[in-house]
Write a protein that binds this DNA or RNA. Structure first.
Lengths: 251, 251
DNA sequence: CTGGATCAATGGCCGGACCAATGCTAAGCA
DNA sequence: TGCTTAGCATTGGTCCGGCCATTGATCCAG
């Protein structure tokens, strides 16, 4: 091949790449600040506008946090922290062994996913989805989440056993994340979520106390998203899911 | 609560939200062009700089495609329509004719998931799936993964552009994890993964070097799973996905 | 020592200017 | 007529300089 394809890439993209590399190589460490926009511009020999565009791209990607009047903070990489949870280890041990590996690859919405497997997957994805939602949710997104929450509360008052409001609440948060993969993921998983065993367990452990806890946790998640607090939304979602997992483990 | 939290969000973010809503509501349809930056600026009463920043944010999110000298092309597919005839589409109604912000909840395999969004989701799930696979993969599971790996190598030799072996490799690992949620997740996401944009980027940046890297990384993952090393499999998968993400971010 | 005022640094936003790429159109040619 | 080509208007790309708003640190008064 030998020929390098010449891409007349836009300046902001090239700048973003350079900064990304510098972050990856440890020159700019998480928790520290990037040089001021003006300095970056002169150092790179570009205008401040282009630097700003690059920083916005990095901000959307979640690599930096732009703070007005302060500076541009290099963020810690979120996916790394999801490990090392003893509770998760317990869940993993409880899921059943794998199916026949020669089964044809097919999406089958009638497959019943065991509750622990389902919660294990949600535990990985939903905290990040909530954090993204806190950052990106539009007012329409927030209104949709609020409506789902309202229905969730109504469901609880009506002693619902299928909890459509709860499902909708989580799905709408995934939608508000702006990540289509998260959205599809949640739709698929919650489409599975009400198989026989799951429903049985659900009714078994839906005590008045758990309903109250769940409601207040939902409210906390919603508040954080409304306030635009990524860390708050992530933590609130973790607390919520861990409680649900705990309830099922208590059996 | 009466007090509505003030999200003193930056202009570019508010603009991006508005455009996002307009795309979602079908005002700006996929395949059509947004109004010129200058028009958007005057319509919104903001500067062109802010509009440009918003467009870059949307571009990073994969919702639009900015074309020099031409215009800004809408790339997303609003969840509502897409009046295709996909065999596997299934619409779930989780709400009664509820309140106003009635967002459509539908599993739609025709929705094109932007590469970064897809990889972001995979980055959360696949390392854990690999670790689980390392713990409990049966000999049959490993044989299935090996077969997929062999096909992946053959695909590379044959200059495949759809990479069925690669997809199968990752799906087999998810199957070997024994977590049905992980399996369904990967099947759904990789079913999306080969839409137009993704394929275009894939072919554009599949250099000989990247193929070699990918192959050795796949081999490392397979080795760790074979050896029953959870941490090794998790780390190897992280290394692999981070490389892929890096390639796509560099676009 | 504490609290408030001050101030420099930094990001946020603006408007205009000019350049470069694109696509359309009409003139020119075979 | 039909095709090519040179303009030309449109649109995004980039830069500049300016001014405002927020933040955090510093200094001063009590």
């Amino acid at each position: 091949m030998a020929l390098e394809p010449i891409r007349n890439r836009r300046i902001y993209s090239q700048i973003a790449d350079q900064i990304r590399d510098l972050i990856a190589s440890g020159v700019y460490r998480p928790g520290s600040y990037l040089p001021p926009e003006r300095d970056l511009a002169t150092s790179l020999g570009v205008s401040r506008s282009s630097v700003r565009e690059a920083l916005i791209a990095l901000e959307v990607l979640g690599l930096v946090d732009v703070r007005v009047g302060d500076g541009v903070l290099v963020r810690a990489i979120p996916p790394a922290e999801a490990q090392g949870d003893s509770l998760m280890r317990r869940v993993m041990r409880l899921t059943r062994p794998g199916p026949d590996p020669e089964l044809p690859v097919a999406l089958d919405l009638d497959v019943e996913i065991p509750p622990f497997a389902l919660l294990q997957a949600r535990r990985l994805v939903e905290p990040e989805a909530a954090a993204l939602a806190a950052r990106r949710a539009t007012s329409a997104d927030i209104a949709a989440i609020e409506a789902a929450f309202a229905q969730n509360v109504a469901d609880n008052r009506a002693r619902s056993t299928t909890h459509p409001g709860d499902r909708m609440f989580h799905i709408r948060i995934a939608q508000a994340s702006g990540n289509a993969a998260f959205e599809q993921f949640m739709i698929v998983l919650l489409g599975h979520a009400y198989g026989g065993m799951f429903r049985r367990l659900q009714s078994l452990y839906t005590t008045a106390e758990m309903i109250a806890n769940s409601e207040s946790q939902h409210a906390a998640i919603l508040d954080s998203i409304r306030a635009g607090s990524e860390a708050g939304a992530r933590d609130a979602m973790i607390v919520h899911l861990d409680m649900v997992i705990d309830v099922f483990l208590r059996e």
